[in-house]
Design a protein around this nucleic acid. Structure first.
Length: 573
DNA sequence: GCCGTTTTCGGCCCGACTGTTTTCAGTCG
């Protein structure tokens, strides 16, 4: 069983226990253990074999025993008994907006409803409105919620939400009385996918900005509107919420709006130890004293902590690290001096080598690698071995023209074929300065096969980097089912660089695996995989993913000087 | 069910909004 499968079981247990009416803290404990498993960079099976389950955050004796039972037998008697008591299908009812465990339990006990279809039917027949605590409005809300479930977009890729959010920010900044507007939530934390768009505005009086927000022409539905918080659903199914706080509360409000929820809980727990009750409004003392914070830094400072970058705020140990003064010095966009994966008209790129080089110079880069595809990837017009030699001549010519303005390295993105062999013979690979071995096809091979295939490629002494390791395409195409722990171990041993592909549809390695990679001493490279000049602007998405993985500057080879990169390439032969 | 720089027992973040209520429960983030 994988980390994710275990996490799903514990989340399901939490849902069912909540419907059952269990102690809320027991439920939260299961959720915390599930989150811990989801955020884990190592394979749970390895931790289990080492007998270190209870070292995981949120895993104590009882949950460790359940993990042990699941990994040993593939089953959990506790879960089977629970499902016999509380129908498993009730958990899906919790997905309906505004429907929580109390009402699900009410409908189940009073009307025997266990499925979505039964709930919809009962609502349409007006059977819900007479139950205690219910009324016509609540019933209508449920009907509407079930419909919303059907059209609700799942989490959307960062790259799609980003331009929309930017436009929304610009719009709100123009409202009179608005002092500041900033992204919050998973967008500010730069998660690869986001559930909704969270925005914080500072204004003395919230009414003008709230009105402007809910009255936008693309708003399909207003889900709620109050003095400090409103939320809407846009026509495309995307949701957004806006908080408005006075400028003098901006710091605490921004911490609150940025989250994650778990980070906030962790921070508030720590604040309590320091004698403060932390909310979006202030840091309050029990004696009635209060500290308000205009800046986020002041909130952390008041707790004796350094400011924690938003990308780290996932409760993955950042608060503990901040307490110890051990936060990483994260890589930043300004540190990037090179882009080591891009395509030209030699395969599926839109521009010539010269044009790509000119664009890179505009980005201030010292070095680029032109990494066109190899021939077996027919759909993109990959290069034959003969073309590799011809392209070399062109790269030399362009290099001569541009002098010391930029270094151009000849690379190639070489297919890892379905049997694990590479698309060029060794004598061709030997002539290419920077060899990328990539998966694009047969991604659905079984875990063991695709992992062996990848490791075989890593073992080829000519291979320098693995670009976009899993091949995922957000939001639809899952990546290969790689045993990443085994892949990273092989890469660490071979000195092969792993890429964080900056394209927002990829962000691959993901944040969790990037963090594991640097723990293993692997060097990373953050590249745009540009097929046009505009694509080079996507670099910041990759940098943010690295930051989410606690990656520091020196661990990223394209922050190095060009001479250091060239020296490294030479050392690899 | 987890956890300990006040604790191995007794706590466990904090507040906004809505609807059904005349003061609060449920849901959400």
């Amino acid at each position: 069983m994988t980390n994710q499968q275990l996490a799903d079981i514990f989340r399901k247990i939490a849902d069912l226990l909540e419907i059952k009416g269990e102690n809320i803290y027991k439920i939260l404990a299961y959720r915390k253990a599930a989150d811990s498993l989801s955020n884990l960079s190592q394979d749970i099976n390895d931790i289990w074999k080492e007998g270190k389950l209870t070292e995981l955050d949120g895993v104590g004796k009882a949950i460790a025993e359940k993990i042990d039972e699941l990994l040993t037998t593939g089953h959990l008697v506790f879960f089977d008994k629970l499902v016999a008591e509380v129908p498993e299908s009730l958990a899906e009812l919790l997905q309906v907006p505004d429907l929580g465990p109390k009402k699900v339990a009410l409908f189940w006990k009073e009307l025997g409803i266990t499925r979505l279809s039964e709930l919809e039917k009962a609502a349409n027949e007006g059977k819900l409105r007479n139950l205690p605590g219910m009324g016509e409005k609540s019933e209508a809300k449920i009907t509407e919620g079930i419909k919303a479930l059907g059209r609700r977009t799942d989490r959307i890729p960062l790259g799609r939400a980003w331009p929309f959010a930017e436009e929304l920010l610009d719009y709100l900044r123009k409202v009179s009385g608005v002092k500041e507007v900033e992204l919050g939530g998973s967008l500010r934390r730069m998660r690869a996918t986001v559930g909704d768009i969270d925005i914080l505005a500072a204004a003395k009086d919230s009414s003008a900005v709230m009105d402007a927000f809910v009255k936008r022409t693309d708003v399909a539905r207003v889900l709620g509107k109050g003095e400090t918080k409103s939320s809407v659903e846009f026509r495309q199914g995307l949701r957004a919420q806006l908080w408005v706080h006075p400028p003098e509360h901006w710091g605490t409000a921004l911490v609150y709006a940025t989250g994650s929820k778990d980070h906030n809980v962790r921070l508030r727990e720590y604040a309590l130890k320091k004698g403060f009750s932390l909310s979006e409004h202030s840091l309050a003392r029990a004696d009635g004293g209060e500290i308000t914070c205009e800046r986020e830094e002041q909130v952390y400072q008041a707790l004796g902590l350094p400011w924690i970058p938003p990308e780290l705020r996932e409760d993955r140990g950042e608060v503990q690290a901040a307490i110890k003064g051990e936060l990483p010095k994260l890589v930043g966009l300004k540190d990037i001096k090179a882009d080591l994966q891009m395509h030209s008209t030699w395969s599926d790129g839109k521009l010539s080598i010269r044009q790509m080089a000119d664009a890179a110079i505009l980005h201030g880069y010292q070095l680029i690698a032109i990494t066109d595809h190899s021939h077996s990837l027919g759909v993109v017009g990959g290069m034959s071995p003969e073309e590799v030699l011809e392209q070399r001549k062109e790269i030399d010519e362009v290099s001569k023209e541009l002098g010391d303005k930029i270094h151009i390295v000849q690379g190639a993105e070489v297919e890892i074929k379905s049997d694990g062999s590479l698309d060029y013979p060794d004598d061709v690979l030997a002539k290419i300065d920077f060899v990328l071995a990539a998966l694009h096809t047969s991604l659905r091979q079984p875990r063991q096969k695709v992992t062996e295939r990848m490791i075989h490629a890593i073992h080829n002494p000519h291979v320098d980097m693995i670009p976009h390791p899993t091949g995922r395409l957000l939001p639809d195409r899952e990546g290969a089912d790689l045993d990443m722990e085994a892949v990273l171990a092989a890469a660490a041993k071979a000195g092969v660089v792993m890429e964080i592909n900056a394209h927002p549809a990829r962000l691959d390695l993901n944040d969790v695996h990037a963090r594991r990679a640097i723990e293993l001493g692997i060097k990373l490279s953050i590249n745009t995989d540009a097929h046009s000049a505009e694509d080079m602007d996507l670099m910041h998405f990759g940098v943010s993913t690295a930051r989410r993985g606690w990656v520091e500057k020196d661990q990223v080879i394209n922050t190095w000087s060009s001479s250091k990169v060239l020296k490294w390439l030479k050392s690899r032969g």
